[in-house]
Simulated assay, not measured.
Amino acid sequence: MAEYERSRTMPAQPEHVFDQAANASQLDAWLPDALHVDAGDPPAVTVHDDRSGQDTPALLRSEPDQLRLEWGTREQGGYAGRLQVAGIGSGASEVTVHLSFFDDAHDPGERAVADALDGSLRRLEEQVRMRTENPAG
C-alpha cells in the first residue's frame, strides 16, 4: 500500500474553499487534467481517465459539516482519497489531500502523484481566488 499527502494554504475562509472543492459541476477545474467526474447519482459517480480511456465506478461523499470530501473506487477497492479543509486564522485555510493506493498496480509512483497533487491544489487555489475576487462568478 502506498500513501501520499500534500497541503496548500489558500487565502479564503474554509467554508468558501470547501464549497469550491465540493462543487460537483466544477470538479474537473481542479482535478488532475486527465480525470473527469460524471457525478450522475451521488455518491455513485464515474471517473473517466483520458490516459487509459477507461471509465471507473467510484464513490464521492461530501461532508460539509466536517469540510471534508472522500472518494474511492467502488468495485475494485484499489484507491481512496480525501480532501480536508481547515481554517488557520486571518481568513486563510489549509487544504490537505491524502491518497491511498491499496493495489500497487494502481499506484502511478511518488513523482507522478506529487506532481498531480501539487497541480490540483494550485488549480483549486486559482478557482478559490477567482471566486473570492469575483463573488458573482
Rank of each mutant, 00 (worst) to 15 (best):
M1S: 12
N134M: 15
G40N: 10
D49E: 13
S25F: 10
R123W: 15
Q84D: 14
G137C: 12
R131E: 12
D19I: 03
A2L: 07
D38P: 01
E5M: 00
Q54P: 02
T9W: 00
I88Y: 07
T73A: 07
V37L: 12
L67W: 12
V128Y: 12
D103H: 03
V113H: 02
A80C: 10
V128W: 13
V97I: 09
G53N: 10
E75M: 02
R111W: 06
A116R: 02
A112L: 01
E3T: 11
L59H: 08
Q26W: 09
F102R: 08
M130R: 13
A39D: 12
E126L: 10
P14K: 08
G137S: 13
D103A: 07
E3D: 11
E70T: 12
P32W: 09
V17Y: 13
N23R: 08
D103V: 07
A136H: 13
Q54A: 12
F101V: 00
D28I: 05
D33V: 08
P11M: 05
M10D: 01
V95L: 03
I88L: 04
E3L: 01
T132F: 11
A12R: 07
S7T: 06
E75P: 03
A21I: 11
E70A: 11
R123H: 15
A44Y: 01
V17M: 07
P43Y: 06
E5S: 11
T46S: 12
A22P: 02
Q26N: 12
L31M: 09
Y4I: 01
P43F: 04
G87I: 06
A39C: 10
D41R: 10
E5G: 01
H106L: 15
E126Q: 11
L67V: 14
L27G: 08
R129I: 15
L99Y: 14
V113Y: 03
M130C: 10
Q84I: 05
A24I: 14
Q54I: 04
G87S: 08
E63N: 11
H16W: 11
G137F: 14
D38V: 06
S62W: 07
T46C: 04
E94P: 04
E3N: 09
Q54R: 11
D50A: 13
A105Q: 01
D19E: 15
Q20T: 15
L99G: 04
A22C: 06
A2P: 00
S90N: 09
Q84F: 00
G87Q: 09
R123F: 15
M130Y: 10
G77K: 04
R74F: 11
A12W: 09
E63G: 00
G91L: 11
H36Q: 13
H36E: 14
E70F: 02
E5V: 05
D19A: 15
E70N: 11
T73M: 05
D33G: 07
A2V: 01
R131I: 10
G40P: 00
G78H: 07
L99V: 03
A58E: 14
R8L: 05
G40H: 10
R6V: 00
G40A: 12
V97T: 04
T132E: 14
A80K: 04
G78L: 04
G78N: 14
W71R: 03
S52T: 14
F102K: 04
R122C: 04
D28R: 10
E110V: 02
G137I: 13
M10I: 13
A34V: 02
D118N: 06
D55F: 08
A136Y: 13
A105T: 03
